[in-house]
Amino acid sequence: MSDIIHKSPKNTTQDLDIDFDSLLNLEESFYQESYDEAFKIGEEHSFRDGKLLGIQTGFQRFILIGALKKASNLLMEINNAKLSKENKDDNPKIEKYLSSLSNILSLINEFYKDSLINVTNTPEDVDIYEKNIKTIRSKSKILFSQLGEKSFYPEIENNCKEIAGEIPTTQINGQEDNMW
């Protein structure tokens, strides 16, 4: 306040030296000084809660991606080994399946960098996730079955669900309730 109204020693109204610009913005400056301070307090207070929720959500969203990456790699390795031992004519479709498996792995590997999942919560990354997870899930389910491992996919999905728990449906972008 002392910045706004300067009083002469006599303290009379006539002697008030008023900074009219500040006076005009008085309400705004009172609001802003309090707002800035409270914003910092609020931000610091909820950052940790947000981080916990972020870690949990990242975990829940990408557990299936990791599982399907490992499962696809296992099936690729096993079927490649089979293919090298067997006559191609015995199972003509296997090469096609392996090519499809390779496509799934390419989609999965879009989330990876140096053997670790490398994603952010930016709208672009979330869009890629939303788009790819549906394709990865549906194709894996069919392909694992075609490769003779019918129970492999549901076993993986059920265990992922059990281990990661249900995805919270609030405060997260996207349709998490439809993830499974």
Partner: peptide, 27 residues
């Protein structure tokens, strides 16, 4: 507003850590 902002910043900060861990656990 600060709480909203902190929650979002914290979430964005934690999300990649959780994703890394989730991926390995999935494997």
């Amino acid at each position: 507003k600060g709480k909203d902002s902190g929650l979002q910043k914290g979430f964005d900060d934690g999300y990649p850590i959780g994703a890394e861990l989730g991926g390995i656990i999935g494997e």
